[in-house]
């Protein structure tokens, strides 16, 4: 059984390959996608163009949340102002009509932005699972350089195609500096 090592030792989060350059990381991610791996992650000190697509990251939920929140904020602000100035407490201001929609625009605009921005940040954190006090990748001491000058690619053990020996051989074929099994 290829899972022999995993069964006796501690559980494994995945196999981590360390690379020298952004291009090598991008190529590794592309190769893994071609090989059929789906549960992968990449870590780099800076954003890399095209990497999100290469690890199959497709996030389409946040824009929808933001749109609904923005529309809610705008509608809420506009109707609240209407209710206050035309229904609940009508005040004659300079002889202007109670329903003075022009003066409602700035607040409606601001609340649209406020709702949309808060929703964007909060739903991003919620979907990311952040803040996250513990993550197995830090079990590899070399990973500290992920925020400096090294590029890491992880194939997680939960991947349906994951096989400790085969996956290690696959990662070794991508010319990494090192391939490490990361404990969970």
């Amino acid at each position: 059984m290829s899972h022999h090592a995993a069964a006796t030792g501690p559980a494994i989060h995945g196999l981590m390959a360390e690379f020298d350059s952004a291009q090598a990381l991008l190529d590794a991610a592309t190769a893994a996608q071609k090989a059929g791996y789906t549960r992968v992650d990449a870590y780099s000190p800076f954003p890399i163009h095209g990497l999100a697509e290469a690890i199959g990251f497709r996030e389409r939920l946040i824009p929808k949340f933001v749109f609904v929140a923005g529309a809610t904020g705008g509608t809420l602000a506009f109707s609240f102002q209407y209710w206050v100035s035309a229904i609940d407490y009508p005040l004659n201001i300079g002889g202007r009509p109670y329903f003075s929609w022009v003066s409602f625009i700035p607040v409606s605009f601001e609340l649209t932005i406020l709702f949309a921005a808060f929703t964007a940040v909060i739903s991003m954190l919620a979907l990311n699972g952040l803040p996250q006090p513990y993550h197995p990748v830090f079990n590899n001491p070399a990973f500290a350089r992920a925020s400096q000058d090294r590029f890491f690619f992880v194939i997680e053990a939960t991947d349906p195609r994951f096989d400790l020996d085969e996956t290690r051989a696959f990662l070794n074929g991508l010319n990494p500096r090192e391939v490490v099994a990361v404990e969970d």
């Binding site: 300079g94 022009v102 003066s103 625009i105 700035p106 605009f109």
Partner: peptide, 12 residues
């Protein structure tokens, strides 16, 4: 456009 409208409308 909203800026122009808002300023002219408010000043009247």
């Amino acid at each position: 456009n909203v800026s122009q409208l808002l300023i002219i409308w408010s000043a009247n």
